[in-house]
């Protein structure tokens, strides 16, 4: 039982630390969102573009971290790491989908004249 509680505490700490560690990513995420708003495409296409480039961003961070800790790319394409990356993309997809309303509002404000 105590292990379980420690697990929950650890989970919450990880959530908190993760929030602070990843907050500098806003420097990159914010321009990406703004660029997506400026594109002459439909809102749905803009959102798809945003999801894709956020995934590319995570992939780059992922590669950077792997090269930092492993000092080489051996085993980088393992099943475990692929699963971690897949789960990150799923979470990112959910994050974009749940902010869809705000995103669409932003896109409507920056709508191109020809749309």
């Amino acid at each position: 039982m105590s292990e379980m509680l420690w697990g929950i505490v650890f989970l919450l700490i990880a959530l908190l630390v993760g929030f602070f560690i990843t907050s500098p990513l806003l420097i990159i995420i914010s321009p990406l969102v703004e660029w997506s708003a400026l594109m002459p495409y439909t809102n749905r296409s803009k959102m798809t573009w945003l999801i894709f480039f956020l995934s590319v961003l995570y992939l780059l961070i992922f590669i950077g971290l792997v090269s930092l800790f492993q000092s080489n790319f051996n085993g980088m394409f393992s099943k475990e790491l692929a699963l971690i990356f897949l789960s990150i993309i799923v979470v990112e997809f959910i994050a974009v989908r749940t902010t869809q309303k705000s995103l669409y509002q932003l896109y409507e404000q920056n709508k191109w004249p020809q749309e």
Partner: peptide
């Protein structure tokens, strides 16, 4: 750079379905 948006643009949106999509979003929330 725009390939993903261009590809997504090729899929026509069915105008009668927004309520459905909204439903999915609400379900997730």
């Amino acid at each position: 750079v725009m390939i993903v948006a261009s590809f997504a643009e090729s899929f026509k949106i069915n105008k009668s379905k927004p309520a459905n999509r909204k439903g999915i979003g609400r379900f997730i929330r």
